[in-house]
Nucleic acid binder design. Structure first.
Lengths: 227, 227
DNA sequence: TAGATTGTTAATCGATTAACAATC
DNA sequence: TAGATTGTTAATCGATTAACAATC
């Protein structure tokens, strides 16, 4: 009989990295255990939600005590699949691509950058952070040599789909797209898309001056409706 | 009697920039109108969800015809509050900060970068993309001169909270935090946090090989339960 | 044991979706 | 008018939360 593996809700999966980051900070302070209310406060979420999230992992704390920090880190890493490192390649060495390539935060969290690719002859051959930029055509070699199956796309928008198709043909199965355009991938390939300008646009909606205006409008309506 | 302003659900707000981006692409091709099913396909969402989202704006299409592309762009921009440009400042000119500062995608979508700030004497005075890096202490001057109320934090994690506090004291009311650590802001300040490594971690959970394993596990359990 | 805190229940809330009447 | 497509309804689904029995 195989073990029961209930699916973890998408909303929970999206929060696990946040919990992991908070646990790593606690671990750096040598905190042995943490309660759900403490960890929830660090992560900025409701304590009941945190406990519910963790219950999906089958990772149990100790009643009356809390969670063992090292233990819980291990369980979250295992569930996310970041308990071993995953080599990553970056395609498109413009401003953003170069910044991502040099960004220490990826390697430090299990995602070492092992290859840089572009199609611009002026970029190919340049060294960046210990790696030589190679032509995209040679990407299959790097995939074979490193076992990496994850690619970060940082090309101009009009190249993103073509590049994605080439990467998938070369064996990439996980794609993180930073180009400000959607790309489509076949079944069997994982995809996430991040558009940095979108974050500013969402922030714009929640600008305090606008929130206050909307609230005032609703208050007026409410008064009108009830008086 | 004031107009009714029903609140727009958070899930809808988060999708409006995506629709806007698709509409801008259609507009560039001079498409005059678009149906909900076409726009939904471009955005990768369900057509019913798209129509429901748009219905929250009070922005109406024409039955039998579809939505006027230019019109709908205007209504989404107005709802998001991106119908006029919002100047933005960047704090922390490391790899990521420099990339964000030079990134044309912000200015092109209504968020011109108008100030660069750091506390590193080696960075202050340097020119980047037409702007001189200034000391963070002088940020209030730029805020006053430009009317900008939005800041992008790209400092090391241990500086993020201090810098955020200084910015808020200087008049910033919207913060987009790229530092891989949470920051807290008082009421009346809008905040969004983006952690690039988190995206890779979430992608890791949905890696096709792992999805297949989990599905297989569930199939086995299902068979065991039903046989 | 007494105090503390988990894991789970059940109620509530919000988001998604298919279906279709309204209507251009 | 006939065909097409919206805007809305209502059912379903998933996520959140408070409360508390279980238990360390």
């Amino acid at each position: 009989m195989s073990e029961l593996e209930p699916p973890v809700p998408a909303a929970t999966v999206a929060r696990l990295p946040l919990y992991l980051r908070c646990l790593e900070a606690l671990d750096a302070e040598a905190a042995p255990t943490v309660s759900s209310s403490h960890l929830a406060a660090l992560a900025g979420v409701n304590a009941a939600k945190l406990r519910k999230d963790l219950s999906h992992l089958g990772s149990y704390g100790t009643r009356g005590v809390g969670y063992d920090v090292g233990n819980l880190m291990g369980e979250i890493r295992r569930e996310l699949g970041v308990d071993e490192t995953s080599p990553v390649i970056v395609i498109g060495l413009g401003n953003l691509g170069q910044a991502l390539a040099k960004h220490g935060g990826f390697a430090g969290r299990g995602f070492p950058i092992v290859g840089l690719f572009d199609i611009d002859p002026n970029k190919i051959g340049q060294e960046m952070d210990g790696l030589i930029v190679q032509h995209l055509e040679t990407v299959a070699n790097t995939i074979a040599a490193t076992g990496g199956h994850t690619a970060i796309i940082a090309t101009p928008p009009d190249a993103a789909q073509v590049v994605t198709d080439q990467l998938i043909a070369a064996g990439i199965t996980s794609v993180l797209n930073f180009a400000p355009t959607g790309v489509v991938v076949p079944d069997g390939v994982a995809l996430r898309q991040v558009d940095l300008a979108v974050e500013l646009q969402i922030l714009s909606y929640y600008r305090p001056e606008r929130v206050a205006e909307r609230d005032a409008g609703r208050d007026r309506n409410l008064s009108a409706a009830t008086s």
